[in-house]
Amino acid sequence: MEQILQFVLSGLSQGGIYALVAIGYYMMWAATKAANFTHGDIFMLGAVSTVILAGLGIPLPLAMPLAILLSAAAGALIERVAVRPFNQGPSSVGWMLTTIAIGLMMESAFTATYGPLGKPLYSPLAQSPIRISGTGIYPQELLIPVVAIAIMLALEIFYQRTIVGRAMLAVAANRIAAGLMGINVNRISMIAYAMAAGIGALAGILLAPVAEASPAMGALIGLKAFVIAIVAGMSSARGVVFVALAYGVLEKMIEGFISTGARNAIGFGVMILLLLIFPNGIFGKREVVKV
């Protein structure tokens, strides 16, 4: 019982990170029907730039929002230079190459300048764990799924109650029709990328105090979050967060009851199986194309 509680708590924390990154994939896919493969590196950018800014003497409460703004600007820039010019037709795939390339360039640039090794990021919530019987978790880790759920709810309100949010829904539903209705589709897409990057950066900042900030920290998390977003269906933030939290717990159960080595093999195997059962994703809707 003690073990299961530990796996659930650790899994929810890990799943919360996946959720925050996967929400970004969902937002960007909705806006442009493209996947920004730099997103794992944007997650890294948030953590690493916070460490750099804090190292320059900027207080953490200021360094964190600055890092999020910087990452949001990077997200907007990526949309403008690496996605939009290569996503002009229904079968365009050039954005895959450009976003993967920019991600690798970011990682290499930070490895060369920031250094390859991880650096700690201070948080008062990561100093001592809360212990429950023989299990434990840092308050920082508990915060992660809470923030993921809060962001999900905030996004739902944003989509329903704001003009920009509604415009995003319109673009997601039909890009051409949204354009004909006077919505600046390119601007809305850019805003979606910036918001996704900001949320991804926030995930990196939340994780860094318990897992170090390093240039390579985003690669695997970016990939897993993408898989989660696909399996969830890329159709709602709620679905993405649910699948992400469940996947985080599943990983810990596999680690705990089978083996660490089997984690990715079984985890990805389950994802493939789910995709076979739900080709449009668990929460996805079949897209009807009228001709």
Binding site: E2, Q3, Q6, F7, S10, S13, Q14, G134, T135, L207, V210, A211, A216, L220, K252, E255, G256, T260, G261, R263, N264
Partner: peptide
């Protein structure tokens, strides 16, 4: 594995 963030299961 390299990159793992939580080894609680093994340590328990």
């Amino acid at each position: 594995n390299i990159g793992d963030q939580d080894m609680s299961a093994q340590l328990i």
